[in-house]
């Protein structure tokens, strides 16, 4: 096991940031923590990267205890915080050699690890980090986190505020790092990125709701979601919410996602109901369940 978390709790005064969280991450796995802002993802990261002490529970990273062996952990992990936190007034090359030096290594020694990523920013190596574009900054931060060949990589919301193209590139890079045997723990508020992880933990309000592979989470979901669309979207939400057997209704892109309580739901009945309420251009079809639907379900149930 690369990361083991057992009953970790952390509270600030009376507010629980995370409550009795447990999960394991296998070696060479990309494990995703999926949850909205304030779910406790960053707190968990800070505990696992030895920046914060948990109130209860134990955790090991790369075989070392986060409290007793924190020094060994710091040598064997790479951490990329959510906020870009490198020296903006130092150049790309200076940032890299700074982090290499404090890890007691050099750029040349571990060049093979970062090579693929570094070649993309190498043309700008004399540019100050502050003058880089968002995507470039992110690549530099990743290089700095990898410069000492870490066994485990922690990425706290690495793609927040990054454009879709760079996001895709970034995930491709993660896949390649995974092939080198690096374990990756990544958090993200984007549900579409969840599908790219090997396994995910859905977390909400400091508690883990589900841990499984994204495929299993979707296939084990027992409810059917329907895409509904009519001409008047606003009125549609109101009316669907008044439908007697409704379970959940929420906007999802250009459709409204509708889920019913009963197993023998008939879409024709719903269509008739909507016609009664003067809806036109009615379209009802079975939707392909996504992680986001399941997350919505789990979180609304929780409330």
């Amino acid at each position: 096991m690369s990361i083991q978390v057992q009953n970790i709790s952390k509270s600030y005064k009376d507010n629980f940031a995370i409550a009795a969280v447990s999960f394991d991450v296998k070696e060479g796995e990309i494990f995703g923590l999926i949850g909205p802002d304030g779910a406790g993802k960053t707190t968990l990261f800070r505990i696992l990267t030895t920046l914060l002490l948990a109130n209860e529970g134990t955790a090991t990273v790369a075989g070392f205890d986060v409290v007793a062996d924190y020094k060994s952990i710091r040598r064997s992990i790479g951490y990329m915080p959510g906020k870009f936190s490198l020296y903006q007034d130092l150049t790309v090359a200076e940032n890299l050699s700074f982090f290499a030096t404090i890890f007691g290594t050099t750029l040349e020694e571990n060049y093979d690890v970062i090579k693929e990523i570094y070649v993309q920013i190498e043309p700008f190596k004399d540019r100050r980090a502050g003058a880089l574009s968002g995507g470039m900054k992110q690549k530099l931060a990743l290089c700095c986190a990898l410069i000492h060949k870490p066994k485990v990589l922690f990425l706290d919301e690495p793609t927040t505020g990054v454009d879709p193209v760079s996001r895709k590139e970034f995930w491709d890079m993660l896949k390649r790092l995974q092939q080198r045997g690096i374990t990756i723990l990544v958090s993200t508020p984007y549900m579409d990125e969840a599908a790219l992880c090997d396994r995910i933990a859905l977390i909400q309000k400091g508690a883990v709701l589900k841990i499984d592979t994204p495929e299993n989470i979707i296939s084990k979901y027992d409810k059917t979601i329907y895409d509904v669309r009519t001409k008047n979207t606003h009125q549609l939400i109101q009316d669907l919410k008044e439908y007697p057997s409704q379970y959940s209704v929420y906007a999802f892109g250009e459709y409204i996602h509708y889920c019913d309580k009963t197993d023998d739901f008939n879409s024709i009945e719903l269509e008739n109901y909507l016609k009664q309420r003067n809806h036109t251009e009615i379209e009802i079809r079975v939707s392909k369940t996504s992680i986001e639907d399941i997350f919505m379900d789990l979180t609304t149930l929780n409330q």
Binding site: T49, T50, L51, K71, R74, R75, I77, Y79, P81, K83, F84, S85, L86, Y87, Q88, F99, I102, F103, G104, C144
Partner: peptide, 13 residues
């Protein structure tokens, strides 16, 4: 403020 202290703190420095 710029977050580098946190980055420094996870290094063996």
């Amino acid at each position: 403020e710029i977050g580098t202290l946190e980055q420094i703190n996870v290094t063996p420095i």
